[in-house]
Design a protein around this nucleic acid. Structure first.
Lengths: 348, 348
DNA sequence: CTGAAAGCGCTTACAG
DNA sequence: CTGAAAGCGCTTACAG
């Protein structure tokens, strides 16, 4: 547990003195705003190295009225999707020497959203990223000044200007199509509450059925974290003769549904095909190994920062904002053993 | 997607003018460093409210040479333990109006540790929290100045001054004891690579066996994320006649071990008891429902910040640093159905 | 191309 | 208790 000795950090003036130039010249060298003659460049570089100088990002921020920092506003901060996206943002930000601030939002405390956003903005970040999967994220938008570079992650294809969307809806559509392609007449759905955006798995399921011209059965919506309800949904569906394929809103739900199905004597996948979503929670080791769909949140995070950075650069250069854009980050299916073609049942 | 209009924020001078006092007086009111007369207090409070004034944390930071911010250094940023601890830190920090910066470390890129730490320190945070579960975390310590308030999370009971430790080792000991209490002669272990601290599950397993005077069998260490190896370990152990109880280093491993055991014809828990750790990944829905051990990372995060804040306050007040301390955050066992008393096998 | 001056928005001695 | 002044460490017009 060695700790280095605490000596006071050198400042720009120290560098200037050692290099025999003025502080503004060092500043210009650092920021590349104006040309600095070659010999001075060299002396400055040498001085910086010798002193181990690192510019104060705080002083720079006060001067620039803006900090080289992004703040991420996210409800549900300990979800895998959130932390993995954060990680991607941080990695991309670090390359530009931007710091990441995390401000959590709380779905169950909507009153605090405004205060939290203001607190996050109090460092005057260069830009913000809002995870718009839920009401808190959407509420946050209202408090973010219009001229602040911003990108919205994960939400709807609404009227936002800069968005990075994940394949929630596309994925749901894909999984449902897959089941339909296997010959199932229709696909039932056990999903989670939908939230405020339309980029949802459940909508993807609806899309697929609609495209194939089959009427969507009523979806069964189970509260988050209530596995017992999902087991019950499995039993309910298992007792019906016409259920041969189920798209579950996530892997936990799928596994609970399978349990319910078995409790009423249905085999998976022999009698009923069940697929999940997220590819988390160890579905690959399940019996049968669970077919699922995985998303690339790391990539989403990186792309979000890059999209934000374009806006920041344009703003700093005094240019027009880049054209608005929506990037869709595709996930991919993980085909395993929990589903099968319709009619193959007797073989199992 | 409403965005509020961007007007420029009021500064301390605006408040001073409106309240009919000087800026330093507003500052004193805000920081409570010196008494301000009642009538002025009221006028200032009114002006702040009227203008919607929020102090610039950046300007304050430049003046104080310190920002109201904590930086967390953590490798493995998308792990549940990390993000949940972060969440706790953030929640506690927010109460003190501190911001949270996240800087990820990378186990596979030890060369970057120094640069990342320096970058994190470049905002001059009031304190830092280092997650010391791995080599990168430990390496980071070296670059943090001695006079910087710091708390170390999760690591060993080493020579650190301020530590918040989770129940890795205690938990491992508890689970092993539990199996021993059920009458098993010994407990085998399939664990993950141990890392650099001694606060590990595997050490807890050793502790328990030692306390009971039983010689520890060789542990089987499987690489992270290599489930096949764990399945293999299950097969290997299953072929031996003397294996009746296994403590797995986490739930994934436990489930893979169970699979291996079954492949060679052993029943769980009838023939072999298996327990996991972490209580993640849906072990409760497994068949048999997996006995495991859960930790409170949220609480760890909150405690870490509070411990840090004590140091920060002392430093700012010019007082001596608080006495060094180690807080151990206990987890708790989740007893389910994957283990049973030794000798009950024939009943199953 | 480069330096002296002023300013970003606070806080902290220093007088009163 | 309170105000005028100076300073935190940068950057950006403004002259040269």
């Amino acid at each position: 547990m060695a700790r280095s000795a605490g000596r006071t950090r050198p400042v720009i003036k120290d560098v200037a003195k050692l290099a025999g130039v003025s502080a503004p010249t060092v500043s210009r060298y650092l920021n590349g705003t104006v040309n600095v003659t070659e010999d001075k460049r060299e002396r400055i570089a040498k001085a910086i190295k010798e002193l181990g100088y690192e510019p104060s990002i705080v002083a720079r921020a006060l001067s620039n009225r803006e900090m080289d920092s992004v703040v991420v506003f996210a409800a549900n901060p300990s979800a895998f999707s959130t932390s993995e996206t954060n990680h991607g943002v941080e990695a991309a930000a670090r390359k530009r020497r931007f710091l990441l601030n995390i401000v959590s939002l709380d779905e169950s405390d909507m009153d605090s959203v405004k205060a939290r956003v203001r607190m996050g903005l109090s460092i005057r970040p260069a830009g913000v990223i809002v995870y718009e999967y839920d009401r808190a994220g959407i509420a946050a938008l209202e408090y973010i000044p219009k001229d602040m570079p911003m990108v919205v992650v994960g939400g709807s294809f609404g009227d936002g200007e800069y968005q990075v969307i994940n394949a929630e809806r596309d994925g749901g559509r894909w999984m449902t199509m897959h089941l339909l392609d296997l010959g199932h007449r229709t696909v039932f759905h056990v999903g989670r509450p939908e939230g405020p955006t339309d980029n949802t798995r459940t909508n993807g399921w609806r899309d697929a059925l609609k495209e194939r011209g089959v009427t969507a059965p009523d979806p069964i919506i189970v509260p988050d974290d209530d596995l017992e309800e999902s087991v019950k949904a499995g039993r309910t569906l298992g007792r019906r003769g016409d259920v041969t394929a189920i798209f579950a809103g996530n892997d936990e739900t799928a596994i609970a549904v399978i349990r319910g199905l078995r409790e009423v004597g249905r085999r998976v996948p022999a009698d009923v095909s069940v697929v999940g979503f997220d590819d988390r929670n160890f579905g690959a080791m399940w019996n049968p190994a669970l077919t699922s769909y995985t998303q690339n949140f790391l990539d989403m995070g990186e792309r979000s920062f890059r999209m934000l950075f374009e806006q920041i650069q344009a703003k700093r250069a005094g240019d027009d904002a880049p054209p608005s854009q929506v990037e869709v980050v595709q996930g991919k299916p993980c085909l395993r053993a929990s589903e099968r073609a319709y009619g193959d049942g007797e073989i199992a």
